[in-house]
């Protein structure tokens, strides 16, 4: 009897190769089956994907804009200039001599001389304190040399070296690097970057919840099917699979929608941005999402879809047991 039974058992079970083969086949089937299930309810599928898409497009779009801003401001570092304020007793001719001296330094591109008179005029015109200055008997402003470091010398250390060299000149009262505002801009951008990251994390969490909730509803709707599967020996993995693939599809479609939203937005603002940069005599072209960024967006989106459905399935599958 026992050997008889064993024979029956082997007949009754597919072989290892068959199992492996059907396992992959099954995955492919479920892959398309879950897609088919979604296409049966196109409106609600689209709505879920839209929610995911919008949630992902927001941080992604901000990220892309930020990258553009960084690219734009990246050039500004090279426009760094050093203002050398000369001692007041230095005469105009002396100043011009220093100018031509510095001009010959190898790490300097150009030196621009601003006389005390011109500085006063500019200050009066631009600062709005013109009337107050008139009350003064003497010109309080020093003459200034605007020194542009060589392009190859734009790294911090070389610039600092040049700065201290200029400071050590005996005619110099004060020399300062006019980089402060660029640094501040970078600091602000860092904060914005952090903000985008946090926003991204929060919205990723929202995507998880959206997918989780949608899958939870799908599980409720297919309660009976799950019960039957469990009754006839379906493993948890088998029952879980279609839901995981559903999460995969939500993630993929949501990611594609996010990509479309960001690309469309970039396209629609690229013309006005170009106009704006033209006004600043600046050639700048808005760059959209790179291939790598697009792939990461899709990858993240799919992973979020999978994790969301995984949580939902894990939580709710155990609750459904045949009675």
């Amino acid at each position: 009897m026992n050997s008889n039974k064993r024979k029956r058992d082997t007949l009754n079970r597919p072989g290892f190769i068959t199992l492996l083969h059907s396992y992959f086949l099954r995955h492919v089937q479920v892959f398309f089956y879950s897609l088919g299930q979604l296409s049966r309810v196109p409106i609600s599928t689209l709505m879920t994907c839209m929610v995911i898409g919008i949630a992902l497009a927001l941080p992604m779009g901000l990220h892309t804009l930020l990258k553009n801003a960084q690219q734009l401001s990246g050039g500004w570092e090279s426009t760094a200039q050093i203002s050398v304020f000369l001692k007041k007793k230095i005469s105009a001719s002396q100043a011009q001599k220093i100018q031509s001296d510095i001009q010959r330094w190898p790490d300097v591109i150009s030196v621009h001389y601003i006389s005390r008179e011109r500085a006063l005029k500019e200050f009066q015109a631009l600062s709005g304190f013109g009337d107050a200055l008139k009350a003064l008997n003497t010109n309080p402003l020093p003459s200034v040399l605007i020194v542009k470091p060589k392009l190859s010398q734009t790294n911090e250390q070389a610039t600092q070296k040049l700065l201290s060299k200029l400071r050590n000149l005996k005619q110099t009262d004060k020399a300062q690097l006019d980089m402060q505002w660029v640094r501040r801009l970078y600091a602000i951008m860092n904060i914005v970057e952090r903000g985008v990251l946090i926003l991204g994390i929060l919205l990723a969490l929202a995507v998880l919840l959206v997918v989780g909730n949608t899958i939870r509803l799908a599980i409720q709707n297919r309660r009976k099917e799950i019960v039957v599967m469990k009754l006839i020996g379906g493993t948890d993995a088998f029952i879980r699979r279609p839901f995981l693939y559903t999460g995969f599809w939500y993630g993929l479609f949501g990611g594609v929608i996010a990509w479309m939203l960001v690309s469309f937005t970039m396209l629609s603002i690229s013309a006005p941005i170009e106009k704006l940069t033209m006004l600043y005599q600046n050639q700048f072209e808005l760059t959209g999402m790179s291939f790598l960024t697009t792939m990461s967006l899709l990858g993240i989106s799919i992973i979020l879809g999978l994790i969301g459905s995984w949580f939902a399935v894990g939580r709710h599958l155990r609750e459904i047991e045949p009675q």
């Binding site: 079970r13 597919p14 068959t18 199992l19 083969h21 059907s22 396992y23 086949l25 099954r26 039957v228 599967m229 006839i232 020996g233 379906g234 493993t235 088998f238």
Partner: peptide, 13 residues
């Protein structure tokens, strides 16, 4: 076919 699919039988079987 469901029990057979669950058990992983081949399509032909």
């Amino acid at each position: 076919a469901l029990p057979l699919i669950i058990a992983g039988f081949s399509h032909k079987d």
